[in-house]
């Protein structure tokens, strides 16, 4: 079957089976391998992309369901080499370790800040409930999103909470 959609601002199309999942279309056909597959049941969220302004799990959609939609993947976030504030926040506040869940985690966080640029800690945690991370304990992910929120609002981000010194 033929599908076409907008991915990271560009028109793309491809020939897929009905059973081809959106995540496989993105990874195999478009060679955008930043969107990851971590489970089968739709729990882990590593495959999260933004579809028509909403974060969705691309492993729980058929490619054909995305016909005509507009998708942003992790590869489409930085513009002209400049990191998105959420990407910057993850780097500045150690929001990642192995980095496997990170693209999905970042996409959920980007979507949150687009709706609410000053979320509380509880709101941040609630917004990433569908993204599992086994490395960070989420602590620094929350800090990363708080950092990014401040950047989006044009404010000085809160300082890191780690103590310096050996």
């Amino acid at each position: 079957m033929q599908v076409s959609m907008t991915v990271n601002g560009g028109e793309v199309s491809g020939d897929v089976e009905a059973r081809t999942l959106l995540v496989h279309f993105i990874r195999e056909n478009l060679h955008l391998t930043g969107t990851h597959v971590g489970c089968e049941s739709g729990y882990c969220g590593a495959c999260t992309v933004i579809l028509d302004s909403k974060p969705v799990k691309s492993c729980s959609m058929l490619a054909v369901q995305a016909e005509g939609s507009s998708i942003t993947t992790i590869e489409g976030l930085a513009s002209n080499g400049e990191l998105h504030p959420v990407q910057e926040g993850f780097w500045e506040r150690h929001g990642l370790q192995c980095g496997f869940c990170t693209p999905g985690m970042i996409m959920s966080s980007v979507a949150l800040l687009e709706e609410n640029d000053n979320p509380s800690e509880a709101e941040i945690r609630h917004s990433i409930e569908g993204n599992l991370c086994r490395c960070t304990g989420y602590h620094n992910i929350v800090k990363a999103v708080e950092y990014a929120g401040a950047k989006v609002r044009g404010e000085e981000p809160p300082p890191p909470d780690w103590e310096e010194g050996s």
Partner: peptide, 9 residues
């Protein structure tokens, strides 16, 4: 029901 992404679809 579910999580943010599930509720969106």
């Amino acid at each position: 029901t579910g999580d943010v992404q599930v509720r969106n679809r």
